[in-house]
Design a binder for these strands. Structure first.
Length: 354
DNA sequence: AAAACGGGGAA
DNA sequence: TTCCCAGTTTT
C-alpha cells in the first residue's frame, strides 16, 4: 500500500532536486557547523515543538556551558533547568540530563552510532533517533515531524489526519522508501528547510519550490488544504491567587514545585487555586499549607498564561509576614537571589510587581 | 489512542 | 483568537 502512494513518483529526480537546492540555500545554523552527534542531539531536543529563532541563543549558551556529554552529565539538575529556563517543556531538559548520564556510563561518553541504542535513551523517540542517525552519522533513517508530514502530504497528496499517531508511522514508511541512501543527511535537512521556508503551513511559496514539478497538491491547486489535521479539544481554565510574601527584610517567599507533573522542580511564588478558598480565608489557608502567618495587602495585578492544554488566570497580591521558613521546597530569598532559581515564564513576569 | 507537557510568533 | 512549531512519555 506504500507502493501505491509512490506509484509513478520519480524518486531519484526528487532526491536530486531537493539536495541540490539544499546545498545551495541551506540555512546557516549553529548546530550545522560540525557533525558532533552530541550537538546535533541537543539541538534536536531543543527544536521539539520550538522554533529555530527561539532555540539559537539557548543552544549557544547551553553548548558553551555544557560542551560535552560528560560536562552535562556532571552538572546539577537545577543548573540544567536554569539553562533551559523560558524554553518550555522542561521534561526535555530532565530527560536529556538523564540520557547523557546513561551515555557516559554505558557508552563511555560517546553518543552511540546505533538506532536501537539511541531509542533506549530518555527523550529520544523515533523522530530524534532519525535526525541523529541521518545528520550526525549519515544513515538513511526517516526523521518525521510535523514539517515532514506537511511537505509529503502535499507532494504525494496524502490525506490522512496527521493528528493521528498511526499517520506518523505511514509517513515513516514513505520517507524510508524515498530518502536518499547516498546522502540521507542532506535529504532530511533539505525537507526540514523546505518545510520551514517554502512549504509553510499557510501560503506556501510554490513558485520558488525546488520540487514543484513533483508535487501532486500543486498540480491540483489544493496545497492550502493539506495536510489534513483534526481539531484539538478545548483548554481547561484554572484561576489562582499568587502571593508575593515579603518579610521585614524584604526577603520573598518562593516554593519548589513537585518533582513530577507540570513544571516539575521549577520554582514559583506561592500559588493558591481560587476554587479552594475565598479571599477572606486566604491567610488561614496559607498558614495551614505553608506554616506562616501573613497579612494580605493590595492586589498588584493579574496575568494569563496559556499552555497547550490549559489556561492559568492569576491574580497577584502583595503580603507581609514576620515568620521564617527554610527547607528543601520553601525558601525566603532576597530579590537579587531570585535569578539563581529556575522559574516558569508566568512567575518571571510576576517579579516586576515586587 | 489520548492526554500531558511550555512558550513564542505569525496570521 | 487560533494555529503552528525539528515530539516524547505516560496513561
Amino acid at each position: 500500500m506504500i507502493e501505491k502512494l509512490i506509484e509513478g513518483f520519480d524518486t531519484t529526480r526528487f532526491q536530486i532536486d531537493l539536495i541540490e537546492w539544499y546545498n545551495k540555500y541551506k540555512r546557516d545554523l549553529p548546530w550545522r557547523k560540525d557533525q558532533d552527534p552530541y550537538k546535533i542531539w541537543v539541538s534536536e531536543i531543543m527544536l521539539q515543538q520550538t522554533q529555530v529563532d527561539t532555540v539559537i541563543p539557548y543552544f549557544q549558551r547551553f553548548i558553551e556551558q555544557f560542551p560535552t556529554p560528560k560536562a552535562l552529565a556532571e552538572a546539577d539538575e537545577q543548573d540544567v533547568l536554569k539553562a533551559w529556563e523560558g524554553l518550555g517543556y522542561y521534561s526535555r531538559a530532565r530527560n536529556l540530563h538523564t540520557a547523557v548520564k546513561d551515555v557516559v556510563i554505558r557508552y563511555n561518553g560517546r553518543v552511540p552510532n546505533d538506532g536501537k541504542q539511541l531509542l533506549t535513551l530518555k527523550g529520544i523517540g523515533p523522530y530524534t533517533r532519525g535526525a541523529i542517525m541521518s545528520i550526525a552519522f549519515n544513515e538513511p533513517y526517516p526523521a518525521v515531524d510535523g514539517n515532514v508530514m506537511r511537505v509529503f502530504s502535499r507532494v504525494l497528496k496524502i490525506e490522512d489526519d496527521i493528528a493521528q499517531a498511526k499517520t506518523r508511522r505511514l509517513f515513516e514508511k514513505v520517507v524510508g522508501k524515498i530518502i536518499s541512501k547516498e546522502n540521507p543527511s542532506a535529504f532530511n535537512q533539505g525537507i526540514m528547510d523546505l518545510g520551514a521556508t517554502i512549504c509553510t503551513p499557510k501560503s506556501p511559496q510554490c513558485l520558488l519550490c525546488p520540487v514543484q514539478s513533483h508535487c501532486r497538491a500543486y498540480a491540483e491547486g489544493i496545497e492550502q488544504w493539506l495536510p489534513v489535521k483534526s481539531k484539538a479539544k478545548k483548554k481547561k481554565r484554572i484561576s489562582y491567587i499568587s502571593l508575593l510574601i515579603q518579610d521585614e527584610h524584604g526577603q520573598i517567599m518562593i516554593e519548589k514545585r513537585p518533582n513530577e507533573g507540570l513544571l516539575a522542580n521549577l520554582w514559583q511564588f506561592p500559588m493558591i487555586p481560587i476554587k479552594e478558598v475565598c479571599l477572606k480565608h486566604l491567610p488561614k489557608y496559607v498558614y495551614e499549607k505553608y506554616g506562616i502567618h501573613i497579612r494580605l495587602e493590595n492586589k498588584q495585578g493579574e496575568l494569563r498564561h496559556v499552555f497547550t492544554h490549559l489556561i492559568w488566570d492569576i491574580e497577584i497580591f502583595q503580603a507581609k509576614t514576620t515568620d521564617k521558613v527554610e527547607n528543601d521546597r520553601l525558601k525566603q530569598v532576597s530579590q537579587e537571589a531570585l535569578a539563581d532559581y529556575p522559574f516558569p515564564v508566568p512567575h518571571q513576569k510576576m517579579m516586576q510587581y515586587i
